[in-house]
Design a protein around this nucleic acid. Structure first.
Length: 386
DNA sequence: ATGTAC
């Protein structure tokens, strides 16, 4: 099959380009719904990890001329993935070292529901009191940000140690803007519902409400990046102590996959919305993590204009969490992860994140061969899940 | 994914 697949425009709507061999019927319906919204320009682009989510599908990219659609960004604003590579030295750590390192990481980095106790940590000056648009959001920030900065969170968030084909060790981590980002997303979805029209309401960026949504969303993305940096700082400390060598600072890659950004496309300045999708300029490095226990990839963007210079954010779910719990046996997951260090006693709940619940990452990369070029394949050695 | 409202 040649990709992208074209779904022609419905009357009054925009066409849809799909870089996915499998188009789940529910996700197709969500794409068509979005493509019929009056603020959508050019076309809607669907990435190969497309799957149904609340409102619009994960893996959807679209652009507007002067609208922001808070419901089209995902709840975890600025959520993304970071990676660091360690220099090739005396070889990879063995299982005993990995186990020690993983338990040290779990001690130093709050994971899942855990946050910093009491008032939390002092925030860096740049994040101390951003000019958010309402008193309620500022209050949420002051209360939550110090307790959440440097915490991993739950769901599909993870911290992982990987190796590449040359035998170099990598740190890979996936997390977002935690409570503050959720509060910001929630607020602007409500504002859009109250002021906007239709079932996927957008706010004009030329109104105070639209401008506030854009500005607050930027702060959520800044917090998410700072969160990844804070977690990485602690993790790199632990790793340096265990390995006797520091990560290569120039090797860092960081991408976020729930955001809106003003970018130039086809000579026009557009607001590009990405929900579970990554924007990469041609030649820019990005990360596409597979599911737990499977490979992840460092990639390079190819700048495909028809995809608004975007790619997938991961492998993409094929089973919902409840379907995965019903269908995947913990023993099957334990077998697949037999060479990976992780919390085996949690296998019964970790089936929600099992490879069988996700698309095969190699197929995802084949589907987006004209969007990204794979540079480095990473295979997991140890995983800390939220 | 998330805190909070239900």
């Amino acid at each position: 099959m040649t990709l992208p697949r074209l779904l022609p425009a419905a009357p009054g709507g925009r066409p849809i380009l799909v870089w996915a061999r499998a188009l789940p019927p529910g996700a197709e319906k969500q794409l068509r719904h979005l493509a019929a919204q009056p603020y959508v320009v050019e076309h809607v682009a669907a990435m190969p990890d497309l799957h149904v989510a609340s409102g619009i599908a994960v893996g959807t990219v679209f652009a507007t001329e002067h609208h922001v659609v808070p419901g089209a960004l995902g709840g975890d604003l600025g959520c993304g993935v970071s990676a660091w590579r360690f220099p090739l030295t005396t070889g990879l750590p063995g299982r005993d070292v990995l186990e020690r390192v993983l338990s040290r990481l779990a001690e130093r980095i709050p994971v899942g529901d855990a946050v910093h106790r009491g008032r939390g940590l002092p925030l860096p000056d740049a994040l101390a009191s951003p000019p958010l648009s309402t008193g309620k959001l500022s209050h949420a920030w002051e209360r939550l940000a110090p307790r959440h900065l440097g915490t991993l969170g739950g769901g599909n968030h993870f911290l992982e140690l990987d190796r590449d084909a040359e035998g170099a060790l990598w740190l890979l981590l996936h997390t977002g803007s935690r409570g503050v980002g959720a509060a910001i997303a929630d607020h602007h979805v409500r504002v859009a519902r109250a002021l906007g029209e239709g079932s996927l309401p957008g706010l004009s960026t030329r109104t105070p409400e639209g401008a506030a949504c854009v500005a607050d969303t930027r702060w959520a993305c800044r917090f998410a990046l700072a969160n990844r940096e804070a977690i990485a700082a602690r993790a790199l400390d632990v790793l340096e102590e265990a390995l006797g060598v520091a990560a290569d600072a120039a090797s860092r890659v960081d991408v976020h996959h729930n955001h809106v950004a003003q970018e130039e496309h086809g000579g026009r300045l557009l607001w590009v919305h990405r929900k579970g999708a990554v924007g990469l300029e041609a030649g820019q490095r990005g990360l596409i993590p597979g599911s737990m226990g499977t490979a992840s990839y460092v990639v390079e963007g190819r700048g495909e204009p028809r995809a608004f210079r975007s790619c997938s954010h991961g492998a993409g779910r094929v089973l919902s969490r409840s379907e995965a719990r019903a269908r995947i046996r913990p023993a099957a997951l334990e077998h697949l992860l037999r060479r990976v260090v992780y919390a085996r006693e949690r296998a019964a709940t970790l089936v929600e994140e099992a490879p069988a619940a996700y698309r095969d990452i190699t197929e995802v990369l084949e589907d987006e061969a004209d969007l990204v070029r794979p540079l480095t394949r990473l295979t997991p050695l140890a995983v800390l899940k939220g």
